[in-house]
Amino acid sequence: MATQDTQDGGFPVDPLHQFEITPLIPINIGGLDLSFTNSALWMLITVGVISLFMIAAMRHHELVPGRLQNCAELLYETIANMVRDNVGSEGRQYFPFIFSLFLFVLFGNLLGMIPSSFTFTSHLAVTFTMAIIIFIAVTIIGFARHGLGYCRMFFPHGAPAWTAVILVPIELISYLSRPISLSMRLFANMMAGHILLKVFAGFVLLMGVAGVVPLAALLGITALEFLVAVLQAYIFTILTCVYLHDAIHMH
């Protein structure tokens, strides 16, 4: 029965196996391993799916939108409103980036829900790279707009001067921890969800007929994971907007 698959640990599935990166086309440039891996493949699939979707949706670009065009316009309006509400009119020029970011994370999360696919957003290297680029870009925008006045970010307006001793380090730490929290939130959510699915799948195999109980749980968790996939993409994007707002308006 199911126990035949059992490894030495006694658990039928390795919940971490899904996160392993395997090179598909080995590429080595200047001693740096830039192999085309399963992660890269799914990034490419994500970009391909998004591009196909958007181009197909806008192929006819009619005044009265069809079903697909309506979806694309809905996404466009949602992100446009998010940028307008959270960043303001100055955020207009960053809209293409925010839009691409949202769709990249959203489709990355959702395509990761396909069985035996790969979720590149469950890797810290990817989420942290995105977060640190956003962090650096936001900081540059802040200094470019306000010059050294941007340093006032680290001291709340109107607080007594002597509190600077305490407040400035706290604000500085909270500012510097933004890329960490931003990347950790997405990475941990995606990883935890996928581990949870695999662990429950393992229970289903282990428990035989009684496995219907974890199977039912698995169904619920799968639905929840779809919610998490959408919500985390939304949170990642909206936090980027909030950081951008801080850089442009300073609180």
């Binding site: 990166i21 391993d33 891996t37 970009v47 293409p96 691409s100 990249f104 290297a125």
Partner: peptide, 27 residues
């Protein structure tokens, strides 16, 4: 694999950004 992940992230996201900002969003 970090270097590869970061490299392909740049490549694919850059591609997406170009497609979105040049083609899809203006339409």
């Amino acid at each position: 694999t970090y270097a590869s992940q970061i490299f392909w992230l740049f490549v694919t996201f850059g591609l997406l950004y170009i497609v979105m900002s040049r083609v899809a969003l203006p339409r």
